Simulated scan of single mutants.
Amino acid sequence: MRHLRLAALSPLAAALLLAACSTGEPAVAPSAPQPSAMHAQLLEDVRILAADEMQGRDTGAPGGALARAYIIGRLDALGVTAPPVGREQPWEMQGRTREGPKTFNGVNVLGVIPGTRVTDKYIVVTAHYDHVGVNDGQVFNGADDNASGVATMLALAADLKREAPEHSVLIVALDGEERGLLGARHFVEAPPVPLASIAMNLNFDMTARAETDGKLWVTGTYQHPTFRPLLEAVPANGAVALAFGKDTPQDTGDDNWVNSSDHAAFHRADVPFLYLGVNYHPDYHRPSDDFATITPSVFISATELSIASFRALDRGLNR
């Protein structure tokens, strides 16, 4: 268990913030890195986002702002441009806390990658970067929830910059998921592109700890059965394979994930969705959800499987 550090940023955190905000030399070389370098960057993204200096990345807190600056710096370094509405999408909404309702000021982070075949339709790739912050003096770092999903999304963005997608893609790091899907709700209420032009939402939330059952779960094919054949052909990667479910009327309680993360806001807005994530594990929503609990080989396999899944969907969608 860790205890809350001083609010002042450590030298490491200050250096990270300066690096993230820098417009100088990019942190990622423009030429395609070797797989080992790509894997190292994936793990480094999780390590940094789940560091104590981020103070649990709560919405509206200094740690959340530090995480946001890091993500913006990574997108800038990758050459992922901002859409016409800008890199940041601020919002103010009422959310939930343990003490009751509270008004939160959050910010979504946006990037766009043009498609080569269907330029006027978008796949919106989302991952929430917030977590629950500090509770009872303990930092909840949220390495799997959801520093992992953000790192997977950044790895996908890097892959799409090396080989352009067929559909245009919006890369969206959402804020306020833990407070009631606030950032996702604002996104669909004030989308940067018309909702009618969004072909689907692909949401990454908890992509690291697949060793629990060896599965990266795909939720949403019950609601959108045409997606399933596109993904059934995606082979397992290492010890991790796709599994379909947690989305039927027979899946109840914590075993039904249709409304469990940001994809629910898209679902309610009648936007097709799929959710990729691992099963619950003992560190879920505990201070012990740290970078050290992640098995690198398993997380790398799950991320490569996530990228392969995106490519299969991108190729298979007609519009």
Rank of each mutant, 00 (worst) to 15 (best):
H281M: 08
F266M: 07
V258E: 01
D255Y: 14
V298R: 03
P272W: 05
D213N: 14
P229R: 01
G277N: 04
F273T: 02
A239E: 15
A236W: 06
A269M: 03
F244G: 12
P194R: 04
G214R: 10
H263Y: 03
P194E: 02
A269L: 09
N259P: 00
V218C: 07
S288L: 05
R268I: 03
A233F: 04
F299I: 00
G277V: 00
T207M: 14
T207C: 13
S197W: 10
A233Y: 06
L230P: 08
P282N: 11
I198C: 15
L276E: 07
V271H: 07
P272E: 04
V298C: 10
D251C: 04
T248V: 08
F273S: 04
N279F: 03
P192V: 11
L274T: 09
E189H: 05
T252Y: 05
D289F: 07
S197H: 11
T226K: 12
A196K: 11
F227V: 07
H267F: 06
D290C: 09
H263L: 00
G277K: 01
A233K: 15
D290K: 13
P225M: 10
H224E: 13
D270S: 14
Q250V: 03
Y284M: 04
Y275H: 12
P296N: 10
G253V: 06
G220L: 01
S261P: 01
D205A: 02
D262Y: 07
A190V: 11
H267Y: 04
S197D: 14
V193F: 10
A208C: 06
A239C: 06
L231G: 01
T252D: 08
V278D: 11
S297T: 10
D290W: 01
F266E: 04
L230Y: 12
L195R: 12
S288E: 14
R209T: 12
L242K: 09
G277M: 00
V258W: 00
N237F: 08
P282I: 08
P282W: 09
V258G: 01
